[in-house]
Write a protein that binds this DNA or RNA. Structure first.
Length: 219
DNA sequence: ATCCAGGCCC
DNA sequence: GGGCCCGGAT
């Protein structure tokens, strides 16, 4: 996939949808919590969970670190997979307090490579969650790949069927200037396209990528 | 009633 | 591949 195509897709999406104002979250900590809660879950349900935490004044590292895991699970229930996700939030918080004194600034002070390694090491935080935290919470130049990204590129045969996460990430990062605001907007635009057109059942009619050069029948 | 979510671990 | 899970859309 050429640099040209990567930039063409961005231009088409931006012209159609305009700025997406991501991430929907006020602080780095809220963004991190949202990134974990939104795993395989629509944002509407995640918002309810985050509102529950806010309502109870629990949306700080210290409060959540001390909170009983069963109570945490109950509060985040609307986000789905609530037992699994309560454990994942705890894994993150435990690591944050054991190795970084509970201080997000110490975590974000790591080099981008070390930060990724650190986050990936935590059980329950995989590549997409890691990169969402890097980019959206800490403004690091890391391109976020998600299911929509793979689906969109796959349907246009711009990547191989079995292309892995790192392959796709590298593809974007090598085709674009290393600018967090650009990565931010691009990923958000791909999600927008995925929600509006490139759904599991594709709606190609009127899609901004409908006449993309490599376009063929959808997968 | 069924489908599907901005994944990840086993 | 299977399991984890809620709530809005169809």
């Amino acid at each position: 996939m050429s640099r040209q195509v990567v930039q063409d897709i961005y231009d088409r999406l931006y012209r159609r949808f305009g700025p997406q104002h991501w991430w929907p979250g006020d602080t780095p900590f809220e963004i991190i919590i949202g990134a974990i809660l939104t795993q395989n879950t629509n944002w509407g349900n995640v918002k309810k969970a985050i509102d529950n935490l806010k309502k109870n004044n629990l949306l700080t590292p210290e409060k959540l670190y001390r909170l009983d895991i069963a109570q945490l699970a109950e509060l985040i229930r609307p986000a789905g997979y609530y037992n699994i996700k309560a454990g994942r939030l705890k894994s993150f918080l435990n690591r944050l307090f054991e190795n970084f004194d509970g201080d997000l600034d110490r975590l974000s002070g790591l080099s981008t490579d070390l930060l990724r390694e650190e986050l990936l090491f935590i059980k329950g935080i995989g590549p997409e969650t890691t990169d969402s935290i890097c980019l959206y919470a800490f403004n690091k130049p890391v391109f976020v790949v998600d299911a929509y990204t793979g689906r969109i590129l796959g349907r246009h045969r711009l990547i191989e069927p079995g292309a892995g996460y790192e392959e796709i990430r590298t593809l974007f990062e090598s085709a674009l200037p290393k600018e967090p605001p650009l990565y931010n907007e691009y990923h958000a635009l791909l999600v927008r396209l995925g929600k509006d057109f490139c759904k599991t059942k594709p709606q190609c009619k009127g899609c901004p990528l409908e006449d993309l050069p490599h376009d063929i029948e959808p997968v």
